[in-house]
Design a protein around this nucleic acid. Structure first.
Lengths: 116, 116
DNA sequence: TTGCTTGTATTGGTTTATTGATACAAGAGG
DNA sequence: CCTCTTGTATCAATAAACCAATACAAGCAA
């Protein structure tokens, strides 16, 4: 389920992209699962079809999703978690929760450390 | 250091807000530290002063920052990851780099672990 | 093949964000 | 007191995002 917030600092397309990303990464949208057609999702969210298409295209450019034509847009298989020290990851997540941070906050912190 | 990406789906104001948020929560901007004046940061980023002011105002509305007038805009104490967790963050980033992962990959793994 | 669905692209009009400039009041410092 | 800095507010003009409608080609199914 995707919900658009008019008061959100980001626009509709970015909100759709971010929420679908979260649905995929949380496993709620499994690999090979099919996203709703652009027209359908656009109708549900009271948004133009081009706006949903824009979000889908960005999802594809980041590799989260692939798209045939009449085949629709489908979820790509996920990342291999074994490549990382999962214990450290879990420690970070636990500490962040304790500090009252959101997922987006933690991802921002990762980005800061990444570019440091 | 704040960097604006013209290709980013979000606009300048939102990018500034998100990056300063991350800098604060990662401890790189300590409590009571002073943010650059709106005109200065605007000049550095080649952006209008009102755009930076808009970002500052949203930061204040979320409580991350306080603002006097000529006192400037300063970081509020509180929402920071503890030093231990920050070390874990660095370990994760280092391991990810070694494994050849991208920043987006790591952020995705964080998201998966977050919803696990 | 035919028919239908889907993603993509285009067009024109509307809305929102950003710009650049200006002005103002609160506070700091001399 | 005065001066300077800072955040805030406003304005008209430009840029970007979004909308609504349409058309098209790729692929699936019958």
């Amino acid at each position: 389920m995707i919900i658009l917030d008019a008061a959100h600092p980001s626009g509709p397309a970015e909100q759709i992209r971010a929420q679908i990303t979260a649905l995929i990464q949380s496993g709620e949208l499994a690999a090979d699962a099919r996203l709703p057609p652009v027209r359908q999702l656009a109708g549900d969210l009271r948004v133009a079809a081009g706006t949903v298409a824009k979000a889908y295209k960005e999802l594809e450019s980041t590799g989260l999703v692939r798209t045939g034509r009449a085949n629709g847009t489908r979820v790509n298989p996920g990342l291999v978690l074994d490549t990382l020290a999962l214990k450290d990851v879990q420690r970070v997540v636990t500490a962040a929760r304790k500090a009252g941070l959101s997922l987006e906050d933690v991802q921002g912190i990762i980005a800061v450390s990444w570019n440091a």
